[in-house]
Design a protein around this nucleic acid. Structure first.
Length: 558
RNA sequence: GCGCCUGUGGCUCAAUGGAUAGAGCACGAGAUUCCGGAUCUUGAGAUUGGAGGUUCGAAUCCUCUCAGGCGCGCCA
């Protein structure tokens, strides 16, 4: 919340108290329409009904609003901050910041503490499974995860980036079965490029998955492979370790490309034993119960559903493993909050898992949160690695690069890479978390309109202008103090950019509270539009500091 | 069957219960002696799936209904 908003709230609250309304904190919002001021409050409309019954002094909402405005205008704090305070039609009170205030708030460093200062937040994202395709759904996950990390960091929180990967289980067994069925010798494959290894692994998985469903003998064999791995027998150990490493090497390349990293990688293979232990140790106290040979959690007691935590074969399921994972994560990074960034199809699953965790150890109550987001859907239907109906992350980025190269011949590889990744990431980020993305190739690599490259282009413009100014030997740092703050009459376009700029802190705070990167995207796109309009209309002579600030802003986004 | 999510111009999406429902794409018409045309201006295009209700005020909240997606014991 901005300082100006705080002033409004405290002053208005004071006036309300004087006229006999206690405990009403006015909401101060930022109107969408500039003609409604920089800030606006609807407090008069909220309290009028209370007042009417006890005091006949105000007969209408407008009368109340006008009275509040009259008192406000007499306050020093208000006159110092706002150029105009006005009561409008239904009963809104609108506030216009004074030019001096706006300029000063741009120049001054934000001295406020981030809203998440001293909070320790563990963010778990990406989580691809080894032996399976890394697809555009993972891309969205990483875009959101990394963005949320940066937003939280901006608000002063300390972040622990983690990635929990499924490197053991049926899907692995299927892939290993498939490799043997393809009659590949692991030694032959080892001489191939990483790309070919990954491709083969994908095919092997598809094959194994198909066989598992259609062929009873294959199913049995896959289950044996699975058991062998869980029991740490030697038979498949070598091939498992090698293929697993291929996947991990490949993922690492993608993380670099997307400009993300992890403080710790977690694997299912390191928690399944402990997970089973934990679950079994809580059968006695009734948290888990045995049922048909398996150990389950009866979520129905909590309006959830039942889930198996340990199979009748004695292996911890995904939910069972999660029990150990939470403790392991906490021991390495004692978090205030653990965010699991996972698609919304897992919502029911996480509710059950968190409830079980909370019963085992109360410290996990309210400190585990599933941050869900909509799925990436293809026009033709859901992606499935079994049917091969899948878009890999790498493929998409490569296609984007091709298109960019095609359109702009004289462009360096470095720039192509940045633009392609920017386009793809932005296309994953700009939607509200909850909405399913209906994936469109053209749009995800769009270069104009509401797109990553549009922002990048705008940023490039600002840098270009700045570079020219520096050539003429004026130093960037000196913009701030080199102009008078009084008597600058802003052009409409300038005012638009200015007013957008001063909202930045608030937007980031909103984004951090609701974990919504798309708010930042919306903001930046607005800002870029306003800047480009300004750029078109006004030669930049006197207001250089606008880009100076824009520079900072653009940096923060992606 | 039960539960969660979604339904907004031709398409893809915005909009802490607020003021005239905003953008982008596509489509029509324009802008470059001047800082990057990956830009900008302008036009047309919407009973916010439907019906009730709450409220000074509803795309947003409640109820019903239609349509779609996802989830619901031995996968991850």
């Amino acid at each position: 919340m901005s300082a100006a908003q705080k002033i409004i709230i405290s002053e208005v609250k004071g006036i309300l108290t004087e006229i006999g309304v206690e405990g009403q904190a006015p909401a101060v919002e930022i109107p969408q329409d500039l003609s409604h001021g920089d800030y606006s409050t609807n407090i008069a409309m909220l309290v009028i009904s209370k007042i009417k019954t006890q005091n006949s002094k105000f007969r209408s909402t407008m009368e109340l609003a006008e009275y509040v405005v009259k008192i406000l205008n007499a306050k020093y704090q208000i006159r110092n901050t706002f150029s105009k305070v006005e009561a409008v039609k239904p009963g809104f009170i609108n506030f216009w910041l004074s030019d001096e205030y706006i300029i000063n708030s741009l120049i001054q460093k934000n001295s406020e503490e981030g809203s998440l200062k001293r909070k320790k937040i563990l963010v778990e994202f990406a989580h691809p499974n080894t032996h399976k395709e890394f697809h555009i759904g993972h891309l969205r996950n990483i875009a959101i995860g990394e963005s949320i990390c940066r937003i939280i960091e901006y608000e002063g929180g300390s972040i622990f980036r983690t990635n929990y990967q499924g490197d053991i289980g049926l899907h692995v067994a299927k892939a290993i079965y498939g490799i043997q069925d393809l009659r590949f010798k692991i030694q032959d494959l080892e001489t191939k490029s990483l790309e070919e290894k990954i491709k083969t692994l994908g095919e092997a998985y598809a094959l194994g998955a198909k066989a598992y469903e259609e062929d009873k003998d294959a199913k049995k064999e896959i289950q044996e492979i699975n058991a062998s791995l869980y029991q740490k027998q030697d038979k498949y150990k070598d091939i498992w370790e090698k293929t697993r490493q291929w996947s991990l090497d490949y993922f690492e390349i993608i993380y670099k490309k997307l400009n993300t990293h992890f403080d710790r990688l977690f694997f299912e293979s390191e928690v399944y034993e402990k997970g089973k232990e934990i679950v079994e140790s809580h059968v006695e106290d009734g948290i888990f119960v045995k049922d048909a040979g398996a150990i389950i959690f009866d979520g129905e007691k909590f309006n959830l559903h039942k889930r198996v935590f340990v199979t009748k074969e004695g292996y911890a399921t995904y939910e069972g493993k999660e029990m150990a994972l939470a403790f392991l994560q906490y021991s390495l990074f004692p978090f205030d909050l653990a965010l699991h960034i996972v698609a919304q199809e897992q919502e029911g699953y996480f509710k059950v898992v968190f409830k079980a965790l909370e019963l085992i150890d109360n410290k996990f109550k309210n400190s585990e949160k599933h941050l869900s987001y909509g799925m990436v859907e293809l026009k033709e239907g859901k992606m499935s690695s079994r049917s091969g109906n899948i878009i890999s992350a790498f493929w998409l980025i490569d296609e984007a690069k091709k298109r960019i190269k095609n359109e702009f011949k004289e462009i360096t590889d470095y720039v192509v890479d940045k633009v392609a990744v920017g386009a793809v990431k932005y296309s994953m980020l700009k939607f509200a978390k909850n909405s399913n993305i209906s994936f469109s190739f053209d749009e995800s690599i769009s270069l104009q309109g509401n797109s990553g490259p549009y922002l990048q282009y705008t940023y490039a413009r600002t840098q270009s202008v700045l570079a020219k100014i520096q050539n003429s030997k004026i130093k960037t740092q000196n913009y701030n103090s080199k102009f008078k703050t009084k008597g600058l009459n802003f052009e409409a376009e300038e005012a638009g950019v200015l007013r957008q700029l001063i909202q930045f802190e608030g937007i980031v705070e909103d984004a951090s509270e609701s974990f919504s990167p798309n708010l930042i995207c919306n903001y930046l796109f607005d800002l870029a539009q306003k800047f480009n309009l300004f750029y078109q209309k006004c030669p930049i002579l006197k207001s250089e500091k606008e880009e100076f600030r824009l520079t900072l802003t653009s940096k923060t986004g992606l």
